[in-house]
Computed example of a mutant assay.
Amino acid sequence: MGGVLERLDLPPVWLAGFAAIGWVAGRLWPLALPGGGWLGVALVVVGLVLMFVAAAQMVARHTTFVPRRDPSALVTSGVYALSRNPIYLADALVLAGLLIHWHALWAAPLVPAFMVVIARRFIRDEEARIAAHFGDAWHAYAARTRRWL
C-alpha cells in the first residue's frame, strides 16, 4: 500500500485535492467576485501557459521536471529567471483561478496552504538535490531568484 501512496504523492495530485476542496466550498458556500468567472479563467490559462513554458524549457535543456528525480542541468533563464519554481507557481495560479471561477472565495486560504504543502513536500528536497549537484552555481542562482516570484 505504501508504494501506491508514494506514487500518488505528486504535485498534480495535491493540486487536484486542494481544487476538489475548493469546488465543494464553492458549491456549499458560494461567494462570487464580480467578473470572477473571466478572471478565474484568465488565471487558469496563465497558469497552464506558464506550466507548459517552464516544462518545455527543462525538456530543451534535457533535464527532468519530475519531482524527486536528479536534474542533469540547472535552468536559470527564461521563466526560471523570474521564479525558481515556475511550475509550482503555475499550479498556485491554476488553483486561485479555479477558486475564483467556482465562486469559492471563502476557500482562498487554500492557495497559500497549497504553497506551504508543496514547499514542504517537494521544494525543500528538490533544492537540496539541486544544491548537491550544482553547488556554487545553484547558490548564486538562489541568491538572485526568489522561490515563488
Rank of each mutant, 00 (worst) to 15 (best):
M1R: 12
G3A: 13
L5A: 12
L5K: 09
R7G: 11
D9I: 10
P11I: 06
P11F: 04
P12R: 01
W14Q: 10
L15H: 09
L15K: 08
F18T: 04
A20L: 14
V24D: 04
A25E: 11
G35V: 09
G36N: 10
G36Y: 06
G40Y: 03
A42H: 05
L43S: 13
L43Y: 01
G47D: 06
G47C: 06
V49D: 12
V53D: 08
A54N: 10
A54W: 02
A55G: 15
A56M: 12
T63N: 03
F65A: 09
R69N: 10
A73R: 12
L74R: 07
L74S: 10
V75Q: 01
R84Y: 08
N85C: 04
P86N: 10
Y88W: 05
A90N: 04
A90G: 10
D91P: 07
A92R: 01
A92Y: 09
A92Q: 08
A92F: 01
V94A: 05
L98S: 01
L98H: 08
I100K: 02
I100G: 00
W102A: 14
W102S: 13
A108Y: 07
P109C: 06
P109E: 06
L110Y: 01
V111Y: 02
A113F: 13
F114C: 01
A119V: 07
I123S: 02
E127N: 08
R129S: 03
I130P: 13
A131L: 03
H133G: 14
A143P: 06
A143Q: 12
T145F: 00
R147C: 04
R147E: 11
